[in-house]
C-alpha cells in the first residue's frame, strides 16, 4: 500500500502533515462521520477536500438532501471542484444508494465516488464495505462514505474520520471566516495516530485544507475581498455602522 499521495489535499508546509492518513493513489475507502446531525455540511465539505478533483460520482440518500439541502454548483466550485465533472444521484433508500455506489466504484475513469447516507444504514454492513473496497481496488477509484446522524459500526474501511464544525476565524468587518473543522481520526489501518484530533481550516487561496493549532483559529485572518466594489471617482468614505460594525467597502 503506497503511503504517499498523488493529490495533496493539505498544503505543503502545513504545520503538521498527515500524509500517512491521506488517500493512497486510489482504491481505498474512507468513512467520514458527522459528529452531530448539524455537522452534516461540514462532513460533506471535508469529504470533498479529501478526494481528488476530477470526475466525481455522488450518490446521496434523499433524506440527506431534505435535511441539509440540495447540492449547489457554485459552492462546489468554491471548494475547488469543477461542477461540470460531477454527476449525482438522489435515491430514496440506503440499499439503492449502496448499489449505485458499488456500480460506480467498479468503473474505471471515475476519480472519486462519494456515498452519502443518512441515519443508521442497515445495508451498509461489513460485507457491503468489503465489496466496495474490492471494486475500488480493481478500478483505482477513491471512495468516500459519508454518514450523517449515525454511529460507527464495524466495516472494512481504510480510515474513519469524525468531523465537527468549529467557529471560524472572524474576518475584519465581523464577517464569518473560512470553514474550520475539528477532525478526529477514529481509526486507520496503517497509522499510529488513531484518536488524534486536528483542527483544519479551508485555505481559499490554495484551495485546500490546512492544519492549524487550535489557538491559531482565534486570531484574525486577512480580508479576502471587498464586498461592494469601490467607488471610482469619489473619495472612499469610511462607514462605521454602530454596534454590529458591518463592512461596506
Amino acid at each position: 500500500m503506497p503511503l504517499t499521495s498523488i493529490h495533496n489535499p493539505y498544503a505543503p508546509g502545513a504545520e503538521e502533515s498527515a500524509s500517512v492518513e491521506r488517500f493512497p493513489s486510489g482504491g481505498a475507502l474512507h468513512e467520514i462521520f458527522a459528529a452531530r446531525a448539524a455537522d452534516a455540511t461540514a462532513a460533506t465539505c471535508f469529504a470533498l477536500g479529501l478526494v481528488k478533483p476530477g470526475r466525481v460520482l455522488w450518490v446521496r440518500q434523499e433524506l440527506a438532501q431534505l435535511e441539509s439541502g440540495a447540492l449547489y454548483a457554485p459552492g462546489l466550485a468554491t471548494l475547488g471542484h469543477d461542477p461540470s465533472q460531477v454527476v449525482f444521484l438522489v435515491l430514496r433508500d440506503a440499499q439503492s444508494v449502496l448499489q449505485a455506489g458499488l456500480e460506480a466504484a467498479r468503473t474505471k475513469g471515475i476519480s472519486a465516488v462519494l456515498i452519502e447516507l443518512w441515519g443508521a444504514a442497515k445495508p451498509y454492513t461489513l460485507t457491503a464495505s468489503r465489496k466496495l473496497i474490492l471494486a475500488a481496488k480493481a478500478s483505482g477509484t477513491q471512495l468516500c462514505v459519508i454518514h450523517h446522524a449515525a454511529t460507527p459500526a464495524p466495516s472494512a474501511a481504510e480510515a474513519r474520520w469524525q468531523v465537527k464544525r468549529l467557529p471560524s476565524r472572524v474576518m475584519a468587518g465581523h464577517a464569518p471566516g473560512w470553514p474550520a473543522f475539528e477532525v478526529t481520526l477514529l481509526r486507520h489501518r496503517s497509522s499510529a495516530r488513531m484518536g488524534q484530533v486536528w483542527c483544519v481550516e479551508w485555505n481559499h487561496e490554495k484551495r485546500c485544507f490546512e492544519f492549524r493549532k487550535e489557538h491559531a483559529l482565534l486570531s484574525t485572518p486577512p480580508l479576502f475581498k471587498p464586498v461592494v466594489s469601490l467607488p471610482v471617482f469619489r473619495k472612499i468614505p469610511l462607514y462605521r455602522a454602530a454596534g454590529s460594525a458591518l463592512r461596506f467597502g
Binding site: 455540511t41 460533506t44 465539505c45 470533498l48 441539509s68 439541502g69 440540495a70 447540492l71 449547489y72 454548483a73 457554485p74 459552492g75 462546489l76 466550485a77 468554491t78 471548494l79 475547488g80 469543477d82 461542477p83 461540470s84 481559499h204 487561496e205 479576502f224 475581498k225
Partner: peptide, 22 residues
C-alpha cells in the same frame, strides 16, 4: 445536455453555500 457557460472558480467569486434549500 448542460448549458456550456462555465463556472466561476476564481477567488474573486463571492462565497456561495455548498448546499441550498429550494
Amino acid at each position: 445536455p448542460a448549458a456550456t457557460i462555465g463556472w466561476r472558480q476564481d477567488s474573486e467569486a463571492l462565497p456561495r453555500p455548498l448546499q441550498i434549500f429550494a
